[in-house]
Amino acid sequence: MDKIISLDNVLWKRDGEEILKGINWEVNSGEHWAILGLNGSGKTSLLNIVTGYNYPTSGKVSVLGTEFGKASLPEMRRKIGFVSNALGKFQQTMSRETAKNIVLSGKFASFGIYEEITSEDERQAGNILKELRIEYISDKRYAVLSQGEQRRVLLGRALMSTPELLILDEPCAGLDVLAREDVLSVTESVAQDKLPLLYVTHHIEEITDVITHVLLIRDGTIVAKGRKQTVLTSEILSKAYKIPVKLHWESGRPWMSVERTHKESRWMK
């Protein structure tokens, strides 16, 4: 499949207010995208469109060959692996489960094992735990794991269904530097297996070598989109973040600092 995501002039309103407007965006096979923007810029709303939990007010959407309005969205969702802090609402249930059981539950899109597990399922879960370098916590309860280990377990759960698209929504939020770099490292190894990736964040230093493209959102509209070397400039980022910033590259990753100047107010407009 060459075209993974296609949004054509998408508008989405909530309570009469335009949250997303004029969204034109394509993700093609072999591309890994970072989605950047301030809190409230529309990143989550965009994800909800892509995953079919929000239906566009107008415009056309196609994800993984499913054209909205012409095919089953629940069937499409089963092809998407999703990791988000929103999964924290299942914390109480997950806390009682082992890391391996949580990974296994990804096959059934559940939290907890309620269906028969086959020997092939066990083998696949074991391989995923090994790939994510967490086989040593296989039999430990989720509640006793570090935050970094928990994020990797949730990533493993998302991979268990053999998805055709992987979405990571701020997977490093709240992590210390060591845990963040560990999660970024395993994310790179997963994406290098050609699984299309959407990586949502507002910290550009989390954009590693594996990310090929960047989508920048401000106030529900697209500021810039394209290859990361083209989109990630001081001027473009300043417009997206509404404050003067300076960008530099180090070890193949972008880093940003704020420039406090008398011209700052013009970016707020």
Score class of each variant (00 low, 15 high):
T118A: 00
V200G: 05
T51D: 03
T93V: 13
Q192C: 01
S189W: 04
Y142Q: 01
M256Q: 06
S189F: 03
R152E: 01
L175Y: 11
T66P: 02
I217Q: 06
I5Q: 00
L216M: 14
G69Y: 14
N28A: 05
G106P: 04
A224L: 08
T57K: 12
K246M: 14
V144Y: 01
P56M: 14
G220M: 10
V183K: 03
H202Y: 06
E259K: 15
E264P: 00
I207M: 11
I102P: 00
L232R: 05
A173C: 01
Y199C: 05
L20P: 01
H262P: 05
S234G: 07
H262C: 09
N101E: 13
V258S: 11
W255H: 15
L73A: 13
T230E: 11
L215I: 13
L168G: 02
S119R: 04
V210H: 12
E181A: 05
V190T: 09
G88F: 07
N24T: 12
V214L: 08
R227W: 04
V214T: 14
H248A: 13
A143W: 04
E120K: 01
R260D: 14
L145M: 09
E170Y: 11
A240V: 09
K79N: 15
V214R: 03
I243C: 07
I204A: 08
S110P: 00
G81L: 12
K13V: 08
L73Q: 08
K140P: 00
H248I: 15
P163A: 08
Y55R: 13
Q124M: 04
S234K: 07
Y241M: 14
Y136L: 00
L7S: 02
L197T: 07
G156E: 09
D219L: 12
I102L: 10
P244F: 13
E116N: 06
L20Q: 07
R141N: 03
L198P: 02
E250I: 15
G59K: 14
F90V: 06
N28Y: 10
L38H: 09
I80H: 01
H32W: 02
R180V: 12
W25G: 10
F90G: 04
V183M: 06
S146K: 01
F108Q: 07
L104N: 01
F82Y: 15
A191V: 11
E170C: 10
L36A: 09
L104T: 04
S185D: 09
G59H: 10
S72N: 15
R78A: 15
V223L: 11
D8P: 02
A179M: 11
K140W: 00
R152Y: 07
K269Q: 12
A125Q: 01
V103M: 01
S41G: 06
G148Q: 05
